[in-house]
């Protein structure tokens, strides 16, 4: 069983880092977005089950995407992966419905652990 996955980050390298960290069997069903607006379009038109989301992006940022998800009432597990490690930001994204906050650069073990904790693996 592999869920439909979306990775949203403006950096190509960061997207690859997330992709590389995913369980092998998930890798075939991954879509990517390079900004918040693109992510929201994909989220609206597809049933995405797991979203890996960067925060600091030009245009609609990660916070905007989280607000969009709430507004659209989408049922999607969001893992924020960001360099903005301020405690206030971590609680803010959780208040907006994110399952977890992960620090960049993301470590494969860390990501897998969190997916297990949330019953996704």
């Amino acid at each position: 069983m592999s869920p439909s996955v979306l990775i949203c980050d403006d950096s190509n390298m960061a997207r690859k880092q997330v992709l590389r960290s995913l369980p092998e069997q998930w890798k075939s069903s991954v879509q990517t977005a390079t900004n918040g607006a693109e992510a929201l379009t994909i989220l609206r038109d597809n049933s995405i089950e797991v979203l890996f989301l960067d925060l600091t992006m030009p245009g609609i940022d990660g916070i905007g995407v989280l607000q969009g998800i709430q507004k659209l009432n989408l049922n999607c597990s969001v893992f924020v992966i960001s360099a903005d490690v301020q405690p206030e930001m971590q609680s803010k994204v959780k208040a907006l419905g994110a399952k977890e906050f992960l620090r960049k650069p993301v470590k494969p073990d860390d990501l897998i652990n969190h997916l297990q904790q949330h019953g996704l693996l």
């Binding site: 403006d10 950096s11 600091t56 360099a83 903005d84 301020q86 206030e88 960049k104 650069p105």
Partner: peptide, 28 residues
């Protein structure tokens, strides 16, 4: 390089926020 700098900047801002006891809004 941009991504390495983003990560470094994020942690620098976190330290600044702690020093000033406030929240720092980050841009790329």
């Amino acid at each position: 390089l941009q991504e390495l700098i983003n990560i470094a900047m994020g942690q620098a801002s976190d330290q600044l926020a702690r020093y000033l006891d406030t929240f720092v809004y980050l841009k790329v």
